[in-house]
Amino acid sequence: MKTSVNIRVNGTSRTHDVEPRLLLVHFLRDLCGLTGTHVGCETTICGACTVLLNGQAVKACTILAVQADGGEVTTIEGLASNGRLHPVQEAFWECHGLQCGFCTPGMILASVELLQHNPRPSREQITHAIDGNLCRCTGYSHIIDAVQSAAKKMARPEKAK
C-alpha cells in the first residue's frame, strides 16, 4: 500500500508515492537524489542524517517520509543561496572543521539551527547543540572553532557586494 507524500525540499515541491515504511532520509537520497544527507547508524545517535524539518534540526533516519508529508525540509544541498556558501559552511571550511566530510552535512545543519536561535553561543552551548552529532575524524575542536567563527560572521552586517 503506497501513500502519496508531498514535501517541499530546499524550496522545491516533491511528490512521490511511497511505502509507509520509507524513511525521510531515503526519500531525500533515493527519490530526490539529494545524497548529501548521510546514514551512519541505525539508532538515532550519529546525526549524519540531520536535516531541518520545518526549521528544526531532526534526524532524518528516525522520521518516516509520511510523517514529513506537507512539511518543509532543508538539506545540506539547500543551504547555500545564489551560489554563495552559508556562513556556517564558510566557517567549517576556514577553520578546517571537517576531514572525511561524512558527518559534516549533519554537523553543519545542527550548527545552523543553533545559530538561528542563539547568535552568540558559548563553547558549552555549542557542544550541547552538537551533542547529537558524532565526528570520528576531527576531534571536534575545529568544529567548535568553526561554529564560533560562523557566529561572528553572522553577527557582522552583510557587506554589500
Binding site: R29, G33, L34, T35, G36, T37, H38, V39, T75, I76, E77, L79, A80, L85, Q89, F92, W93, E94, H96, L98, G101, F102, T104, P105, I108
Partner: peptide, 21 residues
C-alpha cells in the same frame, strides 16, 4: 591553507559509495 577538497564536502555534493547510482 584552506583545503581544496572542502567545497564539495560542505555543499553535500561529494560522492561516497552509497551515493552511486
Amino acid at each position: 591553507l584552506k583545503r581544496v577538497e572542502d567545497p564539495r564536502l560542505i555543499k553535500g555534493i561529494a560522492t561516497y559509495v552509497d551515493d552511486l547510482r
